[in-house]
Amino acid sequence: MSRSPLGSWNDGAAKQAIVGFVTSAATEGAPGYVPPMDRVAVFDNDGTLWVEKPAPVQMPFVLGKLAARLQADPSLAAEQPYRAIVDGDEAYLRALNDQDPDAVTSMVKAVGSAWEGTTFGEFEAEAEQYLASWRHERFGVPYSGVVYQPMLELLDYLRTYGWRLFVCSGGGRDFMRVICEDTWGLPRENVIGSAPEFAYRGGVLVRQAALHGPVALGPGKPEYFLARTGRLPGFAAGNDDVDVELLDCARFALLIVHDDDVREYAYSDSAQRARATAERSGWTTVSVKNDWKAVLKERSYEEEPE
């Protein structure tokens, strides 16, 4: 199978729309021309760049930390998300998995407290140790193997045309920065996400319990992106309702639709508003089942059905 640009994309409407936009954006004088300085693209992470089911890669890392903290201090069970851990509250965990803003906010606050006082290097060492042994429960591959091959090709394709790439996710910024260079080829400063404040203490920077700004969901995504880049995105990609505001700000919006339960997962939870907005606004939608020849990075082309 060809390794040409976007080689694991079927030649359908989604691929044609991407190629049409990117080539027009690079053609001076064309109606869709985008000046080089404005060629900034942003991608959600969970469900957009890698598999988010049955739970995002970061979730067991966080829950394990909170469980250990709860064991050391049982009084924490009176508050969320510790109460959900004690009760085995599937509704809360499902809301967290679906990136419900209230659930995510309570979790991010708990994460801030759990790692309060930890140095930058100490947090990264914990994350690296966790990632070294993490395997997807269905596919059996490490975290690098659940990245979507077509999206890696899209990142490379945009780079070829001079686009600067960013990731903006509700997930932990510092967790994503551990894997961003090797996995996406992105520098750390191009990763935006929910994060704590840092304070300079005794010659080192340590994490604080307080959040640095809002959680990077919904309106928080374009707010963070504008603050970081000074521009609205020319190209944006996401997959669910918390990405709507970010995609709505972009010249070209790409919505990933998860409809392949053979090679990945088929689901629409927390994506109904995004799909309705895509149809109403004319966004480009990507069917995992119909638009991608291959899905996961560590599965060979030959293993995937035509």
Rank of each mutant, 00 (worst) to 15 (best):
S2V: 14
S2P: 13
R3P: 00
L6F: 07
S8N: 14
A14W: 04
K15H: 04
Q16V: 13
I18F: 01
G20M: 02
G20R: 05
T23P: 00
A25C: 01
T27L: 08
E28S: 11
P31I: 11
P31K: 08
P35F: 04
P35Q: 09
D38C: 08
R39N: 11
A41V: 06
V42N: 03
D44F: 01
D44Y: 04
D46F: 06
G47S: 07
T48V: 06
L49R: 04
W50F: 13
K53A: 14
P56K: 10
V57S: 05
Q58K: 08
Q58V: 12
V62P: 00
V62K: 00
K65F: 00
L66A: 07
A67I: 10
A68H: 03
P74Q: 05
S75R: 13
A78M: 08
A78I: 12
A78Q: 12
P81V: 09
A84G: 07
V86Y: 01
D87N: 11
D89R: 07
E90W: 02
Y92F: 13
L93A: 05
A95F: 02
D98P: 00
D98V: 07
S106M: 11
K109W: 01
K109A: 07
V111N: 05
A114C: 06
A114I: 04
G117H: 05
T118Y: 09
T119C: 04
F120I: 11
F120R: 14
F120C: 05
E122R: 05
A125L: 09
A125S: 14
Q129M: 10
L131V: 08
A132W: 03
R135K: 12
H136D: 15
R138D: 10
R138M: 05
F139G: 06
Y143R: 12
S144P: 00
V147H: 06
Y148L: 10
Y148K: 14
M151Q: 15
L152H: 13
E153H: 05
L155N: 08
T160C: 03
Y161D: 04
F166T: 12
V167W: 02
G170M: 02
G172Q: 05
D174V: 02
V178P: 12
I179E: 00
E181H: 07
T183D: 09
E189R: 15
E189V: 15
G193M: 09
P196V: 10
F198T: 15
G202S: 13
G202E: 13
V204A: 12
R207S: 12
Q208M: 13
A209R: 15
L211N: 03
A216D: 13
L217H: 06
G218Y: 02
P219E: 14
K221V: 03
K221R: 02
P222V: 05
Y224G: 13
L226V: 15
R228Y: 09
R231N: 11
R231Y: 10
G234W: 08
G234N: 15
F235Q: 12
N239T: 01
V244I: 07
L246C: 06
A250D: 02
F252Y: 06
R263I: 09
E264A: 14
E264I: 07
Y267F: 15
Y267S: 15
Y267Q: 12
S270A: 15
S270P: 07
A271H: 08
R273F: 04
A276L: 11
A276C: 03
T277Y: 00
T277W: 00
S281P: 02
W283I: 10
V288F: 04
K289G: 05
A294G: 10
V295D: 06
V295Y: 03
R299F: 07
S300R: 11
E302S: 09
E302W: 08
E306M: 08
